[in-house]
Simulated assay, not measured.
Amino acid sequence: LNGQEIGRKLMPAGTVNWQTPGQRGEAKYGSIIQGDITGLLKSGRNVLAVEIHNERSGSSDIVFGADVSISTIPPDLTQLLTVSELHFDDEGTVDWVELHVPGQQEVSLSGFSLATLEDFSDAIDLDGSISAGGYKSFETDFKVEDNGNLDIYLISGQIVIDAHRFDRDLGEESFQSVPAFKDAPNFRKEWYGGTGHTRDAVNDPVRNTNIVINEIMYDAPSDGRTAEFIELFNRGSAVVDLSGWRFVDGIGFEFPAGTTLGPGDYIVVAA
């Protein structure tokens, strides 16, 4: 298939050339290969080639017939479509939500919905389609809880395709997602809240990458619990306001208002 061998029958193992004899077999149908060959297919024209070897040279007794049966594997919907961005209006209501197609095929939105409630009673049906690699936003009127919490569900029928909980406690204008790392699966993404938005375009959230975790003491030699700490370092050239920054996994700590870290400086969070 497309120049790569995918199976053989009544042929010896190893390298085969035009002089390699075949093995005697009955003239009846039999499966040559059964399996997933998705990775060998390509967009557009695919070529399936068959090479037939007789048992011996000089023989004219050869029979070949072929049937090709192709079945598709149901797609993993979580890899087709993902929530990419959401935006808040001046009243704090989610006025639009953006979806993204990370794959290489257009996705029809028929049967997809957006909701914020667990019973999907506020679901908004989607229509149209999104091109491969594209972004598309949809008008919404989703309310945020008084404590700033908001759940977003992307659903197909009653199946949750993507979901995320947001905590809007700093008056963020939008939340935008980016992959957690290169070639990360769709569910491994990081969300950034802040000012501005990139509606219907590639996400580019305002975020600071100059503050890094520089050192961790998680198991002090003395086994003293109060000796554990995490150290941050500002590798940039400007002062960074850490107000509201917090650790949310492993430890729980939020930097109080007015906390800043100058260029080249360190700050320690101790147990």
Rank of each mutant, 00 (worst) to 15 (best):
S243Y: 09
A27Q: 00
S129E: 15
T38C: 01
S43K: 15
S177V: 05
Q105P: 02
L99E: 02
G39H: 04
D169R: 14
E145G: 08
R56Q: 14
N46R: 04
S131D: 14
I152G: 09
R24E: 15
D167W: 07
I130Y: 03
F247R: 04
N186E: 06
V239A: 11
I124S: 07
Q105E: 12
K182Y: 12
V178M: 06
A115L: 04
L48H: 04
A163G: 12
L40C: 05
P21Y: 10
S137W: 09
V83I: 14
L150S: 06
H100E: 14
S243L: 02
G148K: 07
E228L: 01
L109W: 11
S108R: 08
V83K: 04
Y218H: 15
T78S: 09
D162M: 09
I37N: 08
I251P: 07
I52T: 08
D76L: 07
T259I: 06
G262Y: 08
N234R: 03
I230K: 03
S177W: 03
F187P: 09
Y192P: 11
S57F: 00
G65V: 00
P12V: 07
K136N: 11
V16Q: 13
A220W: 06
G22H: 05
V107N: 02
E91P: 00
E55I: 08
V107M: 04
Q23L: 14
L77Q: 15
E172S: 10
L126C: 15
F181M: 03
T93F: 05
L81D: 02
L77H: 13
L150H: 06
W96H: 08
G111P: 13
G236D: 13
D167I: 04
D204H: 06
V160W: 08
K189L: 01
I37L: 13
E51H: 05
G25T: 10
F253T: 14
S60N: 14
L117F: 10
F181C: 01
Y135T: 11
T20D: 09
G65P: 04
T260F: 00
K9R: 12
Y153C: 12
V212T: 14
D125P: 12
L10N: 15
N147C: 00
I70G: 07
I52C: 13
I124T: 12
G3A: 06
D36Y: 02
K189W: 02
L40K: 05
E5Y: 06
V268M: 13
I251E: 06
N17C: 07
G244R: 09
G25M: 00
V239D: 14
L261R: 00
I211D: 14
E139H: 10
E5C: 06
F181R: 03
D67S: 09
D125F: 01
R168V: 03
D61Y: 05
G264Y: 09
A115M: 05
L117D: 12
V97H: 03
I230E: 03
A257E: 08
S60P: 06
S129I: 01
T20C: 11
I159R: 13
L109Y: 10
R188L: 10
T226H: 11
D219P: 08
D167L: 02
E26H: 00
Q19S: 13
G224C: 00
A227Q: 10
L48R: 05
E98S: 02
N214A: 11
E139S: 15
T38Q: 06
N214R: 10
I73N: 10
I161H: 05
I62F: 13
I32R: 07
V97Y: 01
G224Y: 00
